[in-house]
Nucleic acid binder design. Sequence first.
DNA 1: CTAATAGTTGAGTAAAATACTCAGTTATAT
DNA 2: ATATAACTGAGTATTTTACTCAACTATTAG
Lengths: 154, 154
Amino acid sequence: MRLTTKGRYAVTAMLDLALHADRGPISLADISKRQEISLSYLEQLFSKLRQNALVNSVRGPGGGYRLSRGADQIFVAQIIDAVNESIDATNCGGAGNCQKGQVCLTHYLWCDLSEQIHQFLSGISLASLVERQEVKSVSERQEAQDKEQNLHLI
Amino acid sequence: MRLTTKGRYAVTAMLDLALHADRGPISLADISKRQEISLSYLEQLFSKLRQNALVNSVRGPGGGYRLSRGADQIFVAQIIDAVNESIDATNCGGAGNCQKGQVCLTHYLWCDLSEQIHQFLSGISLASLVERQEVKSVSERQEAQDKEQNLHLI
DNA sequence: CTAATAGTTGAGTAAAATACTCAGTTATAT
DNA sequence: ATATAACTGAGTATTTTACTCAACTATTAG
């Protein structure tokens, strides 16, 4: 099953973008600090997110990334599909050649499951996550920690 | 996400048991041949399946494994839970200490997803899989191949 | 009784996937 | 000019997974 830290990081980073959409382009360095994801790793992920037209980039000082469209038009499934190959619970990658070129005993079960997961995550937009109370409070906590760190630097 | 070949093999092997329940105890060697799963690996898996009271074992010649109860009383989720630690889409394993001891931004999303998957697989019994036409036809194909191989041995 | 069968256990290993780093390049604002 | 920050590709360390091996125990058939 293709749902790993990579996909989770990507969704987290995209949600961070959605939460700070009003601040103009957000740099990966900022996301890296807030979400504790390695900058280099984020660069890799955003390369794919950009290829899949989920974000736009702005280069140079003050630059960063923006969502390519409204947070209500971006869905979790799209993000995971962008960084992983796909959400797929089968062993054969959906090809159906699991046993000597033919389908194995449980092939259709895993197909059904993949479909189920995909539908679930296709129904969840970034906007709907932003609205959630738990997300709001975690985000506020992160903002507070962010300011605190900045004070120490002065 | 904890859904790998291990869990898939376990479900496949259990389904094999369910399909051949009328033949008395089924040896791992038989399952190994039919489902093309390494015997040593099956031994590992069945150790856990036995610990979780999903199968009973019969030692000695003519021995093997049997489902511990009716195929309508064993569900896919139970099998996967038995061999993997659990079906869990979070990074923290559900602990909620994903970011500096507190929950990360997307923690609840992954919790919801885990719940979703678990419910789906909890609703699918081995009996319901046995009834499926696709499973029947794959099983018949396997039986045919089995007989063919035995002929060659004589 | 003894030989063969088949489950039981634990330790160990090879391969693959994952997560992550590094070193550079390019574009742009100030 | 210079600093910033996106972009790219190659490379590596770690972890997980899948699998093997070797020994042991219980049971049954002959």
